[in-house]
Design a protein around this nucleic acid. Structure first.
Lengths: 241, 241
DNA sequence: GTCTATAGACAGATAGAC
DNA sequence: GTCTATCTGTCTATAGAC
């Protein structure tokens, strides 16, 4: 259901479009899939830059190369498109956590997590920004079950970190604040590329910039939590080797 | 130093020495100040939740307790209100950096920076979110002068950190990525309070949560960069600071 | 499936009486 | 300074011809 807010032009929730079997015919579904993908791509770009209300369906249609009415043929409302974009992001998000298991080496697992998150931020910057805007705005459209899922993921992996700490593999730290810090530090490059570019003096972030970010994050946060073999130099110090 | 003069015609608050037609010694100006403040407060809340396009001037007026036309009496357009909100934030932002001077002790200076940023995020969460939304959307309204100022601030204080490193007071690290990390980690609690609440299992963030955040950030990032006297325990060690 | 034309609603901004 | 009434433009969503 739509979160009813005073300013939202909530209108009717019409029936879903005709549902064709997805595995039935190849040709019609091919067109459908292609057009849906075009619409979602255009919508992601626009939602990320202009937010929900700032995005015009006419412009989505324009960028997708379709007439506006066709967009309404595939999606019954603007909100349905927005939900689809958010869902697209969440579907591909949990992957970064998969390295974090009780039996894993904390240092390797967390470094992989950081690198996965950064890689995701680099490749899916626009989706990240749609999500960030949604959270900033108070999660007005985020479905409850998605939010609940994120809560549970945090709890699950915090417990893993606590296990590592109890086993003496890591120095004690509140794992929830740790995940927040890692999340914030990695997500920043996807959510606020403009600030990152300005800070780094770039016009665009390169792969090397993301790599440097990973190095700094790991060399500071992880080195202080997980005593490694040689902990003398932090970064690029010549005498540490 | 605050970012100065972005050319806002209305909404200036200095007392003028000479009152022309309206005498009575600033009673009218008192009303003006008060109403402008009410409008900005309402606008900040709405812009933070609904973004630029999602915010309705009618609702701003409603929350401010004024008729809509009065809002247009004090501000000539919606964008002018938005600019004023952004400016309000930037004016109060550089203060956090003031502890970072070449002669300062790096550990103390950076810890103060982290705590100042967190305190600002706690007290000005809504303004932070307006700014975050503006950046996420591509800085469409942010004046170039303000952006340039932020770039210069980053450069200035990065140079200070580089001086510390050259003087052997800190382990080598790219100061720009360091500032990004500190910025991201602190700003997160103001920009994404919903995620922070979900992660921490709170309904609202308390002062203690911000304090715990400061401790984790300092205990991880700063401890690994600035060798302190006793670096055995990371957190919850009886003798810290 | 595709697309034109438009209904219906509502926003930002203004005119002008008080 | 305050506020009602309204103008003007634009948006979502739909009807209905191809």
């Amino acid at each position: 259901m739509a979160v009813t807010d005073s300013g939202l032009p909530v209108q009717k929730k019409p029936k879903r479009g005709r549902t064709k079997g997805t595995d039935e015919g190849g040709r019609e579904d091919g067109i459908r899939q292609q057009n849906v993908a075009l619409i979602l791509k255009a919508a992601t770009s626009l939602f990320s830059r202009k937010g929900y209300e700032g995005t015009r369906i006419a412009e989505v249609a324009d960028i997708a190369g379709l007439p506006k009415a066709n967009v309404y043929y595939y999606f019954s409302s603007k909100e349905e498109i927005y939900d689809a974009v958010i869902k697209q992001l969440l579907d591909g998000w949990d992957a970064a956590f998969k390295a974090i298991t009780p039996d894993a080496d904390p240092r390797q697992a967390l470094e992989r997590y950081v690198r996965s998150k950064l890689e995701h931020a680099r490749k899916h910057s626009e989706e990240s920004r749609v999500f960030a805007g949604e959270i900033i705005g108070g999660a007005r459209f985020l479905r409850w079950r998605d939010r609940h899922h994120m809560r549970q993921v945090t709890q699950t992996y915090s417990a893993v970190v606590e296990g590592w700490i109890a086993a003496g593999k890591m120095k004690p730290v509140d794992p929830r604040h740790l995940f927040i810090m890692l999340w914030a530090a990695t997500q920043f490059y996807g959510d606020f590329p403009i600030l990152a570019c300005d800070a780094l003096g770039r016009s665009r972030l390169s792969r090397a910039d993301f790599d440097a970010a990973a190095k700094v994050i790991c060399a500071t946060v992880l080195d202080s939590l997980i005593p490694s073999d040689a902990e003398t130099g932090v970064l690029d110090s010549p005498e540490s080797r």
